[in-house]
Design a protein around this nucleic acid. Structure first.
Lengths: 250, 250
DNA sequence: CGCTCGGTTGACCCGTTTCAAGTAACGTGG
DNA sequence: CCACGTTACTTGAAACGGGTCAACCGAGCG
């Protein structure tokens, strides 16, 4: 077992082993087991010995700790962040159901990000050494794992594009559409959802100050494109929201 | 063979098969074969059937094309970029000897970036399906591949941090130090090197306009921290350059 | 019920972009 | 090898977007 999720263990949040089987998990089509047959899923499930509950505000991972496991989000919502040299925090990603936490740590065998739950959540611990081991005999698992890593790279490239050349309102539009799409894939409403994170966290992720986030959201609302009420967003006009991202050319 | 590197093939830039063996490649310690024994390196080498020469300004990859192979930079220098919806190009990364091109394409099986050589270069084509296949029997290769993907993620996180919260001069400082470190690892001078890319490309990568890049470099020079002469940079005071990155706190 | 934290909005300021002009390096063809 | 056109780069001045500072509001929680 990893020594990273110390909090969770110390507080007795480990969920019973039986519950953690992939075979009966509703995320089979989103998470690592995509496409695996019964037997293969069973093998993968055996590898996941521990499932943790992480309460809102609690950390799952700390930068600097030794890497030994990835964590698959079973339910809930996480943010990852790094502290830069002058102590301010920079959000590097938000993670929802079926997504993998800790991929950044493989390269140096140390975690480079801190990861904290933004709502009460559950994760499955995936011992990475064992994952590599069993993926030798389950090519599909290996391949899907590679896809998940690649997806993280693509996602980061998208953010880099936003940060590099987009104005505040365009960044917000892209951010909302990204959340919308990921929620839709998970069976939630794509037009009506709760922002789990604060304005400051959105701003940190998008390279903006919280005031700018607030102003931009207000402006999108004035234009009738979204309705925003505290943490609750409704996307009224996805088409116009998409247009926001395409420069000012039309 | 992939159909992506069409230019290269059409123009007869394919290098003889014998030359492309990993076993005799000077990059064994940087590239995929890290840590492999003779036999394993042989197997990996057999997989790399083609090596291409890409001349300065020529593309190796185009966004949208089907993915089938990764490309290891054997020598030379590349940039990757995406075209955003209004046609402007955004640089997503620079790649040097021993680094892998095309990792972003695994997730969707389409390339998402364009990749172009910034100087006359050579790459080894690594058919991805076969790489996955042989990595089943060479755990170290699989693990090292995972590390390389993870490294790309970490690198992207670093850029996101730069773009999100750093001022122009700080971004330039970080950029120069990043290049310096990577060059050092490859046995080149860490204080004295050529910028293969234009000011505009640096700016695109760092989320700045070329004029701002130029001004920031000039300012670093005025302060005596670097000497810059056209494309040639000398880092005169790496310590002060590093300090630039640590906010304005000291 | 009151405190705290998160969010909104306004006014001003600063850094980067934009626009513009001029200069230096480079590659090409004569 | 030089002349030329092209591309890359530098530098200045003005405009603008987002940051900063500050006041206020509202929701959630103890």
């Amino acid at each position: 077992m990893s020594n990273n999720a110390i909090n969770a263990i110390a507080r007795g949040y480990v969920v019973s082993r039986a519950e953690s089987k992939c075979a009966t998990c509703s995320l089979r089509e989103l998470c690592l087991p995509v496409g695996l047959d019964e037997r293969e899923t069973e093998i993968l499930g055996d590898l996941i010995n521990h499932k943790f509950r992480i309460r809102r505000g609690e950390h799952l991972l700390h930068a600097g700790l030794d890497f030994s496991s990835l964590y698959a989000v079973r339910n809930g919502f996480f943010k990852s962040y790094v502290l830069d040299s002058d102590g301010r925090q920079q959000v590097t990603g938000f993670y929802m159901t079926g997504e993998l936490l800790g991929l950044d740590a493989i390269s140096s065998e140390k975690h480079t990000c801190n990861t904290v739950a933004l709502e009460d959540s559950e994760v499955c611990e995936v011992p990475f050494g064992k994952l590599e081991e069993i993926s030798r005999s389950i090519p599909l698992l290996m391949h899907h794992f590679h896809k998940m890593m690649s997806r993280e790279i693509v996602q980061d490239h998208n953010i880099m594009m936003l940060l590099g050349s987009r104005k505040a309102e365009e960044r917000l539009a892209a951010f909302l559409l990204n959340l919308s799409g990921r929620l839709a894939k998970r069976g939630y409403s794509s037009t009506n959802f709760i922002l789990r994170m604060t304005r400051e966290e959105i701003g940190s992720y998008l390279g903006l100050k919280l005031e700018t986030v607030s102003r931009s959201l207000s402006r999108l609302q004035e234009e009738g494109i979204i309705t925003i009420n505290n943490k609750h967003v409704r996307l009224n006009d996805i088409h116009r929201l998409s247009q926001k991202i395409c420069g000012s050319s039309d």
